[in-house]
Each structure stands twice: as structure tokens, then as C-alpha cells.
């Protein structure tokens, strides 16, 4: 009898705890997806404020990506709607979170995954934390106690904010690369991919297939983060996944990156000038897939024209 009582007490305790976690998660969840409301990675999460089913291409990855792809240029050149969900140091567990979040409201036809994230190490602990934080957002947003107002606590969440650059991080800083000459020196070796990372990408591929989205792996130009061994590793993995892989580091003719001028931090990330070249190539490539339609002139997408005007205005102000 005593065992039954103890088991019952334990179950009651756990249920009570779960209830408290759900309650506190509701309280701590940002009620808007703006920075001021405490939203994490608010620029990338600006996609939550986009009109439902309006995004055709989802770019996902780490800082290499948010420095390299300009969604508003894609709109300008081809009329494709896209969003750059790159975040600093993004690991694949967070990539999965962003994918899930996006597909709740959007149904992009193409998902472009920046391959550098595939080599970023993460642990089972990271996955556990991310999963737990997904169910109980108090773990992710607990730090909001510092800024939270009482009236916010009971408000329903309403995500209407969207980033003016659609996730792209603008920078015109120039700091020349120091290893451009030796960059992408051919090698037969292949950089191994961690088991957990492989599994995560396989899951991402499966998810995209189920949702009817085409997964493309891309390596954006970087003299610091990319090399031939990684190229070999991803190329082989892409074959295994049966998806396309574009390594822009090898496309010196198609994407003529000037490593003296097109990088903001010695070849690690591209600046606006480099990103422009990458996006130009991408717009042609995406057109060749024949999966997308030009939405310019469509009254439902008027806001994209307004965003582009603002972006161009900003470029003028920056004398670019």
C-alpha cells in the first residue's frame, strides 16, 4: 500500500510540475516577435510575422548565410519571396526548430541550408535543451523576468513584426582576407561529419520531403570557414541525401568574389558587396529550377515592394 501511495504522490508531483511549467511558459513567452518583447533571434524570427503562405524560399543556416543572401534583391531581380533565417552560430537542432516554426504558417517550395552548420558541433544535451525549451518556453525565455511587465503576462501572443531586410544583416565594412590565395586548395581528403549532425540533416531532409519542399545545400564563400575537405564531405553527403549541392567557393567565374573588398572580417563573412554577387547568382539558379513564380505586380505582395523601396533608400543613405 505504501508503494502505491508513494507512486501516486510522485505522479501528482510530476503532474503539478508540468502544470506549473506550462503556466510559466505561457507567462514568459514573448507576446510579440519584436526585440523589445524579448524574442530570441528576432531578425530570423521575423518570418513569423510574414503573411501566411507567402514565402517561397527559406534560407536557413548560420552567420555565413545571413551575411550572404539578400532576400529583397531576389524579389527585385526575379520576384521571388524569400526569408533569411540565418542566426549566429546556428546548430542543426536550432535549424530544426526554425524549420518547424516556419512550416507552421508557411509552405516554402525550396529550403536552402547553408552547409557550414552541418559541421558545427552540438551535443545530445543541446538537443535535449532545445526540445525541452520547445515544449516549455520558460527555459528559453526565463530571462525575460528582467524586462517583463505585469500586463504582458496574460496577453495572447501575436507575431506581426517582420524584419525590414527579411533576415539579411547589412554591412559595408571591408577587411580583406589574408588567406585568399590558399583558399580551396584541392584535396582528396574529406572532412568527416559528426554522427549527430548526419542524423539531424537526414531528419531535415525527411521533413522537407514530407512537406513537399526541395532541399538544397549551399556553401557560401568564406576563406575562413570553408575548405576543400569540407567540400568533399558535403558533396558526398549530398549525393547520399539525393539533393543538390552548390559550393560557391569553387565558382570563381560565376561569383567573382574579390577577397580584398567583398568581406567584412578577413574572409570569414561577406559584406554587402559580396552578398550582392552571391544573391545574383542564386536568383539565376533559382529561376532555373522552374519551381517558383514571379510575384511582382501581384497586389497581395505590395508590402514586398514597400520593403524594397525602404531597402533601396537605406542603401542610398549609406552611399552604396
Amino acid at each position: 500500500m505504501i508503494y502505491v501511495k508513494r507512486i501516486f504522490t510522485f505522479i501528482m508531483f510530476v503532474l503539478g510540475l508540468v502544470g506549473l511549467l506550462i503556466g510559466s511558459s505561457y507567462i514568459f513567452l514573448p507576446k510579440s516577435n519584436e526585440k523589445n518583447s524579448g524574442m530570441e533571434e528576432f531578425k530570423a524570427n521575423g518570418i513569423l510575422g510574414e503573411k501566411a503562405n507567402s514565402i517561397d524560399i527559406l534560407f536557413i543556416g548560420d552567420s555565413e548565410l545571413y551575411s550572404s543572401v539578400i532576400p529583397l534583391q531576389l524579389w527585385d531581380e526575379k520576384g521571388y519571396t524569400s526569408y533569411n533565417c540565418g542566426t549566429s552560430g546556428q546548430t542543426l537542432d536550432y535549424t530544426a526548430v526554425m524549420l518547424n516554426r516556419t512550416f507552421e504558417k508557411q509552405s516554402p517550395k525550396i529550403v536552402v541550408l547553408e552547409a557550414h552548420a552541418i559541421y558545427r558541433k552540438f551535443t545530445v544535451k543541446n538537443v535535449l535543451f532545445t526540445k525541452t525549451a520547445d515544449y516549455f518556453s520558460v527555459f528559453r525565455y526565463h530571462n525575460r523576468w528582467k524586462t517583463m511587465k505585469i500586463q504582458e503576462m496574460n496577453k495572447p501572443a501575436e507575431y506581426t513584426f517582420t524584419d525590414e531586410c527579411k533576415g539579411y544583416r547589412f554591412s559595408t565594412k571591408v577587411k580583406a582576407s589574408e588567406n585568399a590565395k590558399t583558399h580551396m586548395k584541392p584535396s582528396d581528403k574529406s572532412a568527416p561529419i559528426e554522427k549527430l549532425n548526419r542524423q539531424s540533416v537526414l531528419k531535415i531532409k525527411k521533413f522537407c520531403d514530407e512537406k513537399g519542399a526541395k532541399l538544397i545545400l549551399v556553401s557560401t564563400p568564406s576563406t575562413k570557414c570553408w575548405n576543400y575537405m569540407r567540400h568533399n564531405g558535403i558533396e558526398a553527403f549530398a549525393k547520399e541525401l539525393q539533393c543538390e549541392y552548390i559550393d560557391m567557393n569553387l565558382m570563381k567565374k560565376e561569383i567573382p568574389i574579390d577577397w580584398d573588398k567583398d568581406t567584412r572580417d578577413k574572409g570569414d563573412h561577406l559584406n554587402y558587396f559580396g552578398a550582392k554577387k552571391v544573391t545574383s547568382y542564386l536568383s539565376e539558379y533559382l529561376e532555373s529550377t522552374a519551381l517558383l513564380t514571379d510575384k511582382r505586380g501581384n497586389p497581395d505582395y505590395e508590402k514586398w515592394d514597400l520593403a524594397l523601396n525602404e531597402f533601396n533608400k537605406m542603401l542610398k543613405e549609406q552611399h552604396v
Binding site: G16, R140, N143
Partner: peptide
């Protein structure tokens, strides 16, 4: 519960 919530909310972990 109070102790667990105190740790979860005021613990210095995460981003």
C-alpha cells in the same frame, strides 16, 4: 515547486 521555479526562472543559463 517554489525552489524549482526559482532555479528555472532566475538561473543564469541559456543565451
Amino acid at each position: 515547486y517554489a525552489l524549482i521555479l526559482f532555479i528555472i526562472i532566475f538561473g543564469a543559463y541559456g543565451a
